[in-house]
Write a protein that binds this DNA or RNA. Structure first.
Lengths: 226, 226
DNA sequence: TGAATAGTGTCTTTCAGACAATATGCC
DNA sequence: GGCATATTGTCTGAAAGACACTATTCA
């Protein structure tokens, strides 16, 4: 028996324990990235894992997710959605742990990592180039990516990854990066135009024609395509 | 303090407890119905509730759902899908209980209730005419109905409520009952035809022209419409 | 004026929705 | 032949997809 297991006896604890884990996505350097924490204790010491922790006894699941999120990223008020609950009896070698997972979308420039995390090692990873992951966290991330791709097509989640004001090129890049395919510029604009409103501001990138800034229409429903 | 609460101290139990609850749907008497159990103990004694119970320490969530399902309906091998996890700290007045919920679809004629349930009172209820429900089970059922409606349009869940062989009229009724609206017969058939294969059998209802029996195409993916 | 990026319209195909007449089997 | 139910096709409008040129700014 591994030494870190000697304090755990699966049959001793009558009830399972419950964690909340969050798949936090952002787009950075033209890639879809997920935030991981390096584990400093066994099991899976030195592996990367999803942020998360045990739920407190008087805290709702969503509050727990928000708390974890804030602890890692120092950001509040971001998009958060329950993903799935993973409960395989052997997913944690110590004892029975059920993981209620969430996914979150965060704007790159809001991020101020480590403000509160001097101790923990935190890092963004391209979802296509993940390191060795602890527990079943690889499966969780894959599931979250799938959900994100899916929701992109009929909800407004895509906007959650951008600032309030954005150019249509930026928005198209969000879609292309997540869906992992090139889109036709004219068709994309035709499709997305009903959701956005042009401001009277332009942004200059130094070279090329300046782009108009757009905002999301304010009376837009979250699910907006049948 | 209510008498049934005196054995519970919220702050004493460090960990939450975890139940699995199942929303079991069927179509019967031209209505979408859900299976409920009458509670014989406090809290919510004599209210109706979703089948379910505490998870066993070495059982996966899905196995727990299957076990509950079999205990109530005596049926195995039916469609089962994880729905959502409800974890409000006060959803159960005794102590912190997190409910991992599932939804199941069952063919009416497979049902043999009470074979194993002499003691419990079990009943099918029209989802539009639900009785007073225990805990937050009303919310759970509403959520499940929503999910079912939604999935009907782009997956093959609709077929899970019918026998292997069915008529197109029966299939259309399933859609109409769940979506709660009348559909055009010709448009429905145009839409559904790519998913089904006609057998060489007919069924006679005693009056009117006999209908062909169809089966689901066998290489059909579960998600089949983008 | 050349390089770089932003912005725009037409045609074709596909799919959804409206709509009614004919076919089959039983009595 | 009358009744009850099953089966089938066309037209129209909307949306998706293929496709290429012009506009604006800076160096």
């Amino acid at each position: 028996m591994k030494p870190y297991l000697k304090n755990y006896d699966r049959n001793k604890s009558e009830h399972p324990r419950v964690t909340v884990n969050i798949v936090i996505f952002t787009i950075k350097d033209e890639e879809l990235k997920v935030l991981l924490v390096k584990r400093i204790v066994e099991p899976y010491k030195n592996s990367w894992a999803l942020p998360g922790g045990f739920i407190k006894i008087n805290e709702s699941l969503e509050d727990a997710a928000k708390r974890e999120l804030f602890e890692e990223t120092n950001v509040k008020n971001i998009y958060l959605e329950q993903l799935y609950t993973f409960g395989d009896p052997n997913r944690d070698p110590r004892t029975r742990v059920i993981a209620v997972t969430y996914f979150a979308l965060i704007k790159n420039e809001n991020i101020n990592l480590k403000a509160k995390n001097q101790a923990k090692e935190l890092q963004w990873f391209n979802v296509k180039k993940l390191p060795e992951l602890a527990f079943d966290h690889k499966k969780i991330i894959d599931y979250a990516v799938q959900r994100l791709k899916y929701k992109l097509e009929y909800t407004t989640v895509g906007f959650k990854l951008l600032n309030k004001e954005f150019t249509l090129t930026e928005l198209q890049r969000v879609y292309e990066i997540i869906l992992n395919k090139k889109l036709d510029k004219r068709n994309f604009r035709k499709w997305i135009k009903p959701l956005v409103k042009r401001t009277n501001k332009k942004v200059v990138h130094g070279v090329g024609r300046p782009a108009w800034l757009y905002v999301m229409k304010n009376n837009l429903k979250f699910i907006w395509r049948k």
